[in-house]
Design a protein around this nucleic acid. Structure first.
Length: 430
RNA sequence: GUGAGCGUAGCUCAGGUGGUUAGAGCGCCAGGUUGUGGCCCUGGAGGUCGUGGGUUCGAGUCCCGUCGCUCACCCCA
């Protein structure tokens, strides 16, 4: 086999796929509780959408997009994140003209051309939430609360909420200039990438991990001391709401995030045990994005959670759910019973709603039992020559090995009864 | 794009200083019980040692290239 899954992509095999279904269900359940509804947007869009939405000078747009030209000459790109497409859809369908706020979520694959490493893939899956049409700080708190509810729902207990406000264009301008004027004289002492950041997006110097850069920026007052009155009020209100909800957070002045569209609130939920890719959920407010994309001014806030990363974190924490039984019933065939009749019986049982499998390899009873055991079958139905000729089958309860002979007629109902009883006992209800 | 580490059975890995038929555990299949799972025992199948070249009487082992994977930087979920 010389053809393998391409770099940065991977197959989710049975065993892991059940975990994905479980995480996505948790996301859907959580969204339902907060009344956020699902939106499904295309996996590819015009490349210009992302350039305009995310920012021309971001790494994502400059070097990480999967772009291609289709047969019609359109410049397209696989979506590198979810927000731009959702905003496009909201504008295109004028959802902002309906009941507000518009509260949406999505789950699906995103694509970025980066070097893969732990918790980072070229195709990865994000669960994201966006709310449009309100600048109320209570909505910021709701979104953050939703994010935490989701993490709680999947059993992630160790997290830290990092929170900051990066203001609006009005207050960010002067602060950017302050940064420039303070750092320009020290330019040669900054790391190479920070020297570039100084020209392009000075805010990003703040979250550089280089020790040297950190020291140089230590004395600079945090951005939240430079917020305009409206942004300051919003920032304080967000914190008050979180306090009222009992959600602990850490003010994190260095948190600025890399996407251009953020305004005011930015936040990150980080987890432990994930190496350097520990941010499992991140987002913020983007009040200017709709307008930047040619629509009316629609304030909005959202987050995206990396599900690949989240699953890694849960695995590291050892809190993933145990696999349950794969079938309710395994049907074992012994002797000269025609396979066609067994298949028919199995199909009847399945039509009753039971989860049933059977042997297709003509293996020994012992091996079939072993298979039933491995699948976690609650019962094994032994279809043997003798009983079959008398119109009977043998039902074995795997937990204790007890067996009973049942008539072939009306079997599905009987098995369903026994199964319900066994499951009630397993749940400790009896 | 930069740096480092690693490629041996389906999986996880052993294989001092080069030496004959390349091993283990788990998994799979069969048997021990001619109709009964978990535990145990026996046997079996399964490997171009990533790949190409070089050194050598001889390379899984040493050298170089190449491909792949992993981790980190960058950035981000």
């Amino acid at each position: 086999m010389e053809i393998a899954a391409v770099r940065g992509t991977r197959d989710i095999l049975p065993g892991e796929s059940r975990l994905w279904a479980w995480v996505e269900e948790a996301a859907r359940r959580t969204c339902a509780r907060y009344h956020y509804e699902e939106i499904r947007t295309p996996i590819f869009e015009l490349a210009a959408l992302f350039a305009r939405g995310i920012g021309e000078v971001t790494d994502i747009v400059e070097k990480e997009m999967y772009t291609f030209v289709d047969r019609g000459g359109r410049e397209l790109a696989l979506r590198p994140e979810g927000t731009a497409g959702v905003v496009r859809a909201v504008l295109e369908h004028k959802l902002y003209a309906g009941p507000l706020p518009v509260k949406l979520f999505y789950v699906g694959p995103m694509f970025r051309y980066e070097r893969p490493q732990a918790g980072r893939y070229r195709q990865f899956t994000q669960f994201g939430v966006e709310a449009f049409g309100s600048a109320d700080a209570a909505l910021d708190a709701e979104i953050i609360s939703l994010g935490i509810s989701f993490l709680t729902e999947v059993g992630l207990k160790e997290w830290e909420l990092r929170l900051n406000s990066i203001g609006c264009p009005v207050c960010r301008g002067p602060y950017r200039e302050l940064l420039r004027s303070r750092l320009e004289p020290l330019r040669h002492e900054l790391c190479v990438s920070c020297q570039q950041r100084l020209d392009r997006n000075p805010l990003r110097v703040l979250d550089c991990k280089e020790e040297g850069c950190r020291r140089l920026t230590e004395g600079i007052p945090p951005i939240d001391e430079y917020l305009c009155p409206e942004c300051r009020r919003h920032w304080e209100s967000v914190q008050e709401h979180l306090n009222a909800l009992g959600i602990p957070f850490r003010r994190y002045p260095r948190l600025v995030r890399g996407l251009d569209y953020y305004t005011r609130t930015v936040f990150e939920l980080v987890t432990i045990g994930l190496g350097s890719q520990d941010a499992v959920l991140g987002g913020g407010r983007y009040d200017g994005l709709a307008e930047m994309m040619g629509g009316p001014s629609v304030p909005a806030i959202g987050f995206a959670a990396g599900l690949d990363r989240l699953l890694l974190g849960l695995e590291a924490a050892g809190t993933l759910p145990e696999p349950g039984p794969e079938v309710d019933l395994y049907v074992a065939r012994v002797g000269d019973v025609p396979q066609a009749q067994v298949l028919r019986l199995v199909t009847e049982l399945r039509r009753q709603g039971l989860r049933v499998d059977m042997d297709f390899l003509g293996r020994s009873l012992k091996t079939q039992m072993k298979t039933a055991d491995r699948l976690g079958a609650v019962f094994t139905l032994v279809v043997g020559e003798g009983e079959w000729e008398r119109g009977e089958v043998l039902l074995r309860r795997m937990s204790d090995g007890s067996q009973e002979v049942l008539p072939r007629e009306g079997l599905a109902e009987k098995v369903a009864e026994r199964l319900a009883a066994a499951q009630a006992i397993a749940r400790g209800e009896v």
